[in-house]
Simulated assay, not measured.
Amino acid sequence: MAETASARPQVKRLRTRQKLDKTKRRIREAKEMVISIVLFLAASSSVLITAGIVGVLIYESIAFFRDVSVIEFLTGTTWTPQFANPKYGILPLVSGTLVTTAVALAVALPIGTIAAVYLSEFAPFVVRETIKPTLELLSAVPTVVYGYFALNFVAPVLQYLCSFVGIELSTFSMLSAGIVMGIMIIPYVSSLSEDAMRSVPMLLREGSYALGGNRITTAINVVIPSALSGIGAAYILGISRAIGETMIVAVAAGMQPKLTLNPTEQAATITAFIVQVSLGDLPHGSAGYQSIFAAGLVLFSMTLMFNIAGYVLRRRYHQAY
């Protein structure tokens, strides 16, 4: 009986401890569930926002296409929604968008990639830690500042240079806008590409050095192919950033919808037209106003196609290597 009496407090303490452990476990599980829900909502928010944007574009575009033929919209070569006899051919805006983007990529991709290779493979630590933050400051400059930089500095310089070869260049041109757009997206390309190259294991570099490769050979034949997924992501981000740029082309490209592939001429892009109409030049609810949603849907589709193409190319490359 004495042993039983002495064992009762121990049993009671054991049961109390078990209850406390169970309570703590339930509290921990509840916290984990709340955290899981918050993380799920955060992860799905981008999907929901994208779906909302697409829904708005499609809904408003349907109202536009009740008045305008889809075939005329996609194949027409005249874009004059503000005229008495409006025309809604999107091709002039698409050509202006693609030309300015091509000029920007011709500037940003080579310079950004070369800068990434230098920072990753050749630059000393002190130089890399100085140049990279300085280069990334370019992405912090407001785009309207880039626009006036293109208009007041780059355009006069290009006019002076073109005069030597007999080319007349207007103050407003896709060339000056595209060059400045390329300067603007260099930090995106160089920073992400450099991060991808730095993540390549050092063993791969050492294996190349052991086989007699020098630093440039290792960078071209080992590091860049191994980091192609990250470099491709940087390129896609640069393309998407160039296609969606607004203020630079609105200030420096000319705002004249013209079907041309000549970068020395003036043109309007899809984003520049959206800005122009959003300022109130056309009444709300009219076909001209609703055309900005149809143009936005085309812009979204172009960006989506570039992202899908980049994903397919990266996947094929990984399969090949």
Rank of each mutant, 00 (worst) to 15 (best):
G280K: 00
F40D: 06
L48F: 14
G238C: 12
S190Y: 03
Q18N: 09
I231D: 00
S191N: 09
V126E: 10
V126Q: 14
A43Y: 11
G89F: 05
E129M: 05
L109G: 01
T134P: 04
S36R: 07
F153A: 11
D67S: 15
E136A: 04
P201T: 09
G207C: 14
G213C: 11
V249D: 03
I224S: 04
V117Q: 06
P225C: 10
A253T: 06
K24E: 13
I27A: 07
V145S: 10
A106P: 13
P187W: 03
Y235F: 15
Y289N: 04
G285W: 14
R28V: 09
V56E: 13
V11Q: 11
A150C: 11
Y146F: 13
V200D: 01
P263S: 08
M33C: 14
I183W: 02
R241K: 10
M1N: 08
L169T: 11
D281T: 11
L105E: 01
A84E: 13
R8M: 07
I183A: 00
V189P: 00
Y59R: 10
I111K: 03
M181V: 05
A294L: 10
R17I: 11
Q10P: 01
H318M: 13
T78A: 02
K132G: 09
V145W: 05
V165F: 15
A140H: 02
Y188M: 12
G55N: 08
S229Q: 12
L161S: 15
R316L: 13
K12Y: 13
L48N: 02
M197T: 09
R8T: 07
D195H: 14
R205D: 15
I183L: 13
L211W: 14
G285S: 10
F73E: 01
T260C: 04
G166A: 12
Y235G: 00
A272G: 11
T100S: 15
Y146Q: 11
F306Y: 08
N214K: 08
K24M: 10
L297F: 15
A219N: 03
P187N: 07
K19C: 08
M202D: 11
T100G: 04
G89M: 03
G207R: 04
L20V: 10
V68D: 01
R17F: 09
L74K: 02
L192R: 01
L98K: 04
A2D: 12
G288R: 00
G310N: 07
I49E: 09
K258I: 10
S139H: 04
L175K: 03
V11H: 05
P263M: 07
G244N: 03
G55P: 02
S191Q: 05
M1R: 07
A196N: 04
L138A: 06
S36A: 15
V249Y: 03
V47W: 09
L304V: 09
G212W: 10
T130A: 08
I274N: 01
C162Y: 15
I71K: 05
G280I: 05
G212H: 04
